[in-house]
Design a protein around this nucleic acid. Structure first.
Length: 425
DNA sequence: CTATAACTCTCAA
DNA sequence: CTAACGTTGAGAGTTATAG
């Protein structure tokens, strides 16, 4: 029987910001999505004010001013670096860690029973706090779905927990009573569509769902929900996934900082996205067989004329070459571009992805990484990694495109850029 | 008619 | 003054299409 721990950082982005700026202590703080669009993280003070997750910033701007809420643009360089540090700490506890998202990891606690799982959970929490200054909650259970739920309880302080919740030691009757208090929508895998449908058939709580018949849930909904029910019953259907498989699809897309009409500006944005997608492709040593690009106006602006179009181009030869992909992106744009629209977003998607090794005949036997990176693209990646994205780029991509996103209140990259450290006076 | 491709829906962080 | 709403990826299930 495997035991999983789910470690989840509290208010991760907001906590990262507070970590480096003492003036933010005790201040209600939100972090905004790309382009300063929506609220994607809230500090405890903001949650207490009842500001919902995901709300567009402009809709609460007045309210925010009234309550003195501070808003920061998202600083992914900072969050990604802090995330890596958290993972390093977790790897000191268990040899088997699955990095599930930027702020969440599953750990296998197999063989850790001796001192009690909760003890380990508490130590994990304490060490991340001591070493990094970040608060985490730990959920422990026999399946991933239950560990997610235990984490939820730890966050809410249910069942007398203080940031650590171990389901493996709760007596069955108490456990049922606890799950009967949690809304079914809190279950991992039950989202905003499924929850109302379940409610309608009398399944209101997690306990109701746990009592459901898996076969019936499969027939009425899907295998996914069947597995969820099994997992709630304590029968593991999901394993720890320590190694991330290669991506089958790679996307780069973004809303523009302002509306754009000109062909050249769209071409510039698409060159950027093709470049970024190609970098991701090479980082997993793959080639793509097809490129899709799309452009669209703002679907929320109901009074504006709407246009959205995409095109998929099968590549004559699977490639990972930025120049090829940028070239095809430009050709595709010529086919779908229409004048007279206020475009809001564009993007590039790569598909039919397979390992480079399967495509290129390898004349010189197995190639070492050092040799492979002597190719033009390899050199380009190394220069850009060392000196920053866009240092070396194709001529079709502008350094500071007019389309670039708004980041009105971006914090310094405290941990990854010396030049941005604030002056000490 | 079948096998596959293409597309839609849902979920998650 | 007004208008202003994220990104990326996966998997399952359904529909369209080719042969």
């Amino acid at each position: 029987m495997t035991v999983f721990a789910l470690v989840d950082c509290n208010n991760f982005y907001a906590s990262c910001e507070k970590l480096f700026d003492p003036k933010l202590e005790g201040v209600p703080l939100v972090v905004l999505s790309n382009n300063d669009g929506c609220v994607v993280a809230r500090s405890a003070e903001v949650k207490a004010l009842g500001i919902p997750m995901g709300v567009p910033w402009f809709k609460i701007r007045d309210e925010a001013k009234q309550f003195g809420i501070q808003a920061m643009s998202s600083n992914y360089a900072l969050y990604a670096d802090m995330s890596n540090r958290v993972v390093e700490v977790l790897e000191g506890f268990s040899p088997h860690v699955e990095v599930y998202s930027i702020d969440e990891s599953f750990l296998s606690l197999d063989g850790f029973a001796a001192r009690g799982f909760e003890t380990y959970g508490t130590e994990i929490k304490q060490r991340v706090q001591d070493w990094l200054g970040l608060a985490v909650c730990v959920g422990i259970a026999e399946t991933k779905t239950l560990a997610k739920l235990a984490n939820h309880c730890a966050k809410k302080g249910h069942a007398g927990t203080a940031g650590v919740c171990d389901f493996t030691t709760i007596p069955p009757a108490d456990f049922s009573a606890l799950l009967a208090k949690i809304k079914v929508g809190e279950t991992w895998g039950v989202g905003s569509r499924l929850a109302p449908r379940l409610e309608k058939m009398g399944i209101h709580t997690v306990q109701d769902l746990r009592n459901a018949d898996p076969g019936r849930m499969r027939a009425r909904f899907s295998v996914v929900l069947e597995r969820t029910v099994m997992e709630l019953k304590g029968i593991a259907c999901l394993e720890l996934e320590e190694t991330t498989p290669d991506k089958k699809q790679i996307v780069s897309s973004r809303s523009f900082g302002q509306r754009i009409g000109a062909f050249e500006h769209l071409a510039d944005a698409l060159a950027f996205h093709a470049t970024r997608a190609a970098e991701k492709l090479r980082s997993q040593d793959s080639v793509a067989g097809a490129l899709t690009l799309f452009i669209r106006t703002n679907p929320f602006a109901l009074k504006e004329p709407q246009y959205q179009r995409s095109i998929t181009i099968p590549l004559p030869e699977a490639t990972q070459d930025t120049r090829e992909l940028v070239k095809w992106a430009g050709r595709g744009l010529r086919r779908i571009y229409r004048r007279g629209f206020a475009y809001a977003k564009a993007g590039v998607m790569l598909s039919e992805i397979r390992p480079t090794a399967l495509v290129q005949a390898d004349l010189f036997g197995s190639m070492e990484d050092s040799e492979r990176s002597d190719t033009l693209m390899g050199i380009m990646d190394r220069i850009n990694q060392r000196w920053g994205r866009g240092t070396l780029r194709t001529a079709s991509e502008q350094a500071e495109g007019i389309w670039k996103m708004n980041r009105g209140n971006l914090s310094p990259r405290y941990t990854t850029a010396w030049s941005e450290l604030p002056q000490v006076t």
